[in-house]
């Protein structure tokens, strides 16, 4: 699909080559390259060969970083994205849900409710790239605590040594913070409204009438019921992690999938774009699949339905 769009990838590469003072514009070379990437074939044939190769686990070669395979490039970038984003998403989900539940439950009895809600609103409505800019300004420029970009100090060799891990954490701090803060706002708001809507339900009144402890009613009753939609949200956003990372990763030059895809798009590196898009779609599908598996664990009502056969 990406190949349907106008623009000749090779000319982009050759433009880059000529910028670097390479030998650009030699017609034979262009033809040779085109043959290698199959760009001389009609679109239909390109499409079929893509799927044939894909089924064999081969996503082809990158055009702009030529000798490397697409699978290698993506394989290298994927751990960074997954590490950074899934960690931050889960942290903010847990934090947001718990705080949201408490604030929603206590409602106006809790004096800090109002400022917390206002802060969450502000955080949620601030796009994460804006927050990223603000964080960069404060922490990287003013306070000089955290490094500005990258996933580790340039020139360091990735290994499992302690200094390297610390280095990674230090570099991951700012992008992580920007994502955690923004999504925290959202998880907080959604959990708060879920809990508030549960509060008036009959089963809560019943639990109160039975004389259950308030703590038990909140966590064992209201929270559990609110968890289902909240978990759906988590799964959906985990599925969208890979795709949603583009701007954050680009701003922080974080070498994850988003950054790779963004550069591939800029360089019209079709095989890499294809691979990346494919990965993103697979991630969304897998996330949806996981929701379906998780649902019965959280919500017994769904289990009954399948057992009863409708």
């Amino acid at each position: 699909m990406p190949r349907l769009v106008p623009g000749d990838p090779l000319s982009a590469v050759f433009m880059k080559m000529s910028e670097m003072g390479g030998s650009a514009g030699i017609p034979e070379l262009v033809a040779e390259y085109k043959r290698m990437f199959g760009l001389d074939q009609p679109l239909g044939a390109q499409y079929i060969s893509f799927w044939r190769e894909f089924l064999q686990g081969n996503l082809g070669y990158s055009i702009s970083i030529f000798p490397s395979k697409v699978t290698d490039i993506i394989g290298l970038a994927l751990p960074w994205t997954i590490g950074l984003l899934s960690l931050t998403t889960i942290i903010s989900w847990i934090l947001g849900s718990v705080i949201g539940a408490v604030v929603g439950w206590r409602g106006s009895r809790f004096r800090l409710s109002r400022p917390i809600v206002l802060a969450a609103l502000l955080l949620y409505t601030t796009p994460y790239y804006i927050l990223a800019l603000i964080l960069i300004f404060i922490f990287a420029f003013q306070l000089n605590i955290f490094p500005l970009s990258g996933a580790y100090t340039r020139g360091a060799t990735p290994d499992l040594s302690l200094p390297f891990i610390l280095d990674v954490i230090e570099h991951g701090m700012l992008p992580a913070l920007s994502i955690v803060l923004v999504s925290l706002g959202w998880w907080f708001l959604s959990m708060r409204s879920l809990i508030t809507s549960q509060k008036g339900e009959d089963y809560i009144l019943n639990a109160e009438a039975k004389g259950l402890k308030e703590r038990r009613i909140l966590w064992g009753y209201a929270f559990r019921n609110a968890l289902l939609p909240q978990t759906t949200g988590l799964a959906i956003s985990l599925g969208h992690i890979v795709g949603g990372a583009i701007i954050t990763e680009t701003i922080f030059a974080y070498p994850g999938i988003g950054w790779v895809i963004f550069n591939a798009i800029k360089g019209l590196d079709f095989p890499v774009i294809q691979g990346g898009v494919l990965l993103i779609i697979v991630a969304v599908v897998v996330a949806n699949f996981i929701i379906d598996i998780l649902y019965p664990l959280i919500d017994p009502r769904i289990r009954y339905q399948t057992a009863g056969g409708g």
Partner: peptide, 15 residues
């Protein structure tokens, strides 16, 4: 709904 629109926005805007 299931494809991340931001990615395609970037793709289209770039092209």
């Amino acid at each position: 709904l299931s494809v991340p629109s931001l990615l395609f926005l970037v793709l289209i805007a770039a092209l």
